[in-house]
Design a protein around this nucleic acid. Structure first.
Lengths: 217, 217
DNA sequence: TAATTATCATACCGTTCGGTATGATTGTCA
DNA sequence: TGACAATCATACCGAACGGTATGATAATTA
């Protein structure tokens, strides 16, 4: 009953105790738990999520959760790690072409980025990671390392490579570009500023792109 | 025992029941509660703050809290409202001079803004308002209305007035300017990115200012 | 000073929490 | 099919929660 949780910690591919996987029956249950926990944790935050509610939402009994995860913290960490890694996969897929003209590239990655504002799970993840960044600083750092860092790095390298743009501070420029969009989403969606101080997202993007492309050395 | 809480709701100046204020003795206790509650709520968030802990931190008995505030939610709302209004007072004090040259003005407000990254209570307030923005959307909207809105509006008006800058989108530009700095603080301080992806704040500001001043029409 | 009012100390209420125990039931696989 | 592992149902544990009751003490005000 205990060795399951060893296999699952940080979702390593299993260590071949008897066979490869405790396939299907158990894995399915684990996925149910993860799916349900994602919904509940992202909706209510860590402190206000009860394990009873997770069990209910997952369609699983509480003991089953504790046979897959050590405790509430372990489950929460696993959930946030999973979501963070998923976001990494999607962030700057293959949008950073060095051959197309910069305005096309900047607009495409800006648009893709901006689309996240309509994804409730993205909004909820931002809120949760930030909201729990005092209690779970290591999860915040994971997010920085996995999502923000690589995105910033990739865009920074792009700016540095596009000599005709004459960008003397590629990293700062990359931070400004991404940060502006993040802040826009934060204000309009996370903080519900939508109806209070509305502003068209395309118009915002246009200004931002013009600013980056038009800056003097 | 009940009329105290009426007087205090939203800190209106009292309705002259017998006299003006229940001066000192009671007011002092209320301030103790608010001060203690600020520390506790900002540190642990709403759900993980217990009224016992607030009482302990405030040096006051639990019943005293409930004679000044209706319940835990009422206390939390009062605390966040207080802090939000305080931030409004300080945000763009008198830094938006229309007579000095734009680079001086932009640098000054940028520097003042950026200094907030070293203020733990500012960091904690950001974290709390965002973290609780699902449970307390009206507090998030209050923050937008009171802090973000006016700041954005003032800077936007400034950009519109400085014709020589040829800024065709003053509001978007104001959002980019403030949003970049907020995002910088968010990444570096709130999410503990300081040691992971360090970047000098002055260098960041220099790039941002140059970008805004140097943008083409 | 006398009466009023707020705070104190302490104990309590019902509920929910994270986590566990027990034993029956179901799925997996040799 | 039989043996074993995992999930189920249910009940329970001690602790902590938000909030209240009671009665004594200290501060305010008339």
């Amino acid at each position: 009953m205990l060795y399951i949780r060893e296999l699952m910690s940080s979702s390593k591919p299993a260590k071949a105790k008897t066979q490869a996987n405790l396939s299907q029956y158990s894995q399915t249950k684990r996925q149910q738990i993860v799916d349900g926990a994602i919904r509940v944790f992202l909706k209510y935050g860590y402190a206000d999520t009860s394990m009873n509610r997770v069990a209910e939402e997952s369609g699983v009994i509480k003991q089953t959760i504790y046979s897959h995860f050590s405790d509430k913290e372990g489950l929460f960490r696993a959930i946030i790690e999973t979501l963070t890694l998923e976001h990494f996969r999607n962030e700057f897929g293959d949008n950073l072409s060095f051959e197309e003209s910069p305005d096309v590239v900047l607009r495409r990655i800006g648009t893709v980025f901006m689309q996240r504002k309509d994804d409730p799970s993205y909004i909820a993840l931002m809120r949760t990671v930030i909201g729990e960044s005092a209690r779970f600083p290591e999860l915040a750092r994971l997010y920085v390392n996995t999502v923000i860092g690589p995105a910033k790095q990739a865009l920074s390298a792009y700016f540095a490579a596009q000599k005709q743009l004459q960008i003397s501070e590629p990293e700062a420029t990359a931070r400004i570009y991404c940060g502006s969009i993040v802040s826009y989403i934060m204000t309009q969606e996370v903080l519900h500023g939508n109806e209070i101080i509305p502003f068209d997202s395309e118009r915002f993007l246009n200004t931002l792109i013009a600013m980056v492309l038009g800056q003097k050395k």
